[in-house]
Design a binder for these strands. Structure first.
Lengths: 206, 206
DNA sequence: GTCTATAACGAGATAGAC
DNA sequence: GTCTATCTCGTTATAGAC
């Protein structure tokens, strides 16, 4: 990990990216754009423009080019959703309720973006996964981490190990699929139904 | 619908596409390639090559260009999975078992393609949906049709209308999300767990 | 670290002969 | 319906001054 802060010649004083280093602005712009347009649909020039950085700076920080940048973008999306999920699980005593609340939150965020911002990890990795192993494995690690958060919380609240393992899988996968459908259908309904069904499924193992 | 058969100068006598008209070969090639590489990652020239057709033929049949072709490719994937789902639902008396069997079949197909062939509708529409309304709505119609098949079968086997409606949503969405995760993780496990959990969820409404 | 210019290539789409 | 040639534009990536 690189920790030395760069000099930040052109950091904007306001707007998204205010006060952030150049590298971080680039990663965030890449993550947001690939979330909406996918890996192949997003150009490096567009990323550099959106991040208020020059093309030279992008290749300075990411000599591996677009693939390296996409890998970082996926890790950024990973941390983002992991934070949301951890907060939900920690702030509610009942994991079933926490999952349903997360589904509602995803639905609200999706609507607020006019159905543009789906899962950044899925959008970025789908289609690039076949030819770019680094991108695929970064996405696999993200899903694994999210499952781990759910799994640990279920274990801590008294579920059997095998049940916790399997429930964690379905919780993440169903949220993923419902968010995708909600985005395509431009409706919150799939996510809201998913939240209720997941809570019911979890409760059925008590 | 166009029903007049074209003249088929160059239809290959063997291999994929044997005995098919040019238009159909193009649609199938587009569907298969976009399933693996996504909309933006697939070029029209690549499609025409794979379909044993010339670029001129592609634009002859699809004057709307890449977007029109992608729309047809999605409809093709729609019909394909609808057929698999209908067969499973009709060949088993218990819809819960039919859903679990479908999950297993998806897992086997995914592994057989070395984890390359995920859901063609998702792969093609994600990333293109924002800027191409026709593509988005074709994908929405596909999901709707699949849900309808499950919904009707649940109704016919005695489930309440509201339960059937909601279960159909979660069945399709969970299969979708589990297939996605299985592809990224290169493992059948997410789909097999999803099949069991969906059967359990359905049974809980009897 | 930042910036500009440009190389090298492939994309989508079109024109018009056959 | 098929085929080839071509136009125009955008892409990733690099070079080298500052």
């Amino acid at each position: 990990m690189k920790t030395t802060p760069e000099q930040d010649h052109d950091a904007p004083a306001t707007g998204p990216g205010a006060g952030l280093g150049t590298r971080e602005r680039i990663v965030r712009a890449a993550s947001r754009l690939m979330q909406r347009q996918g890996y192949e649909g997003t150009g490096i020039k567009q990323i550099s423009r959106e991040a208020n950085a020059t093309l030279g700076s992008v290749y300075h920080f990411f000599p591996g080019g677009k693939q390296e940048l996409a890998t970082e973008a996926i890790r950024h999306g990973d941390r983002e959703f992991a934070g949301m999920l951890r907060t939900a699980l920690e702030s509610r005593p009942d994991p079933a309720e926490a999952v349903a609340a997360t589904a509602s939150l995803l639905a609200a965020d999706l609507r607020a973006s006019d159905w543009l911002d789906g899962c950044p990890v899925t959008a970025t990795s789908l289609g690039a996964a076949a030819n770019a192993p680094g991108i695929r494995s970064a996405a696999a690690e993200a899903f694994e981490r999210w499952r781990g958060l759910v799994h640990d919380r279920l274990l801590a609240t008294g579920f059997a190990a095998q049940d916790a393992h399997e429930l964690a899988h379905t919780v993440i996968n169903t949220l993923e699929g419902a968010e995708l459908t909600a985005q395509i259908a431009r409706s919150e309904e799939p996510l809201l139904i998913a939240g209720r069904h997941l809570a019911r499924l979890i409760d059925s193992y008590r």
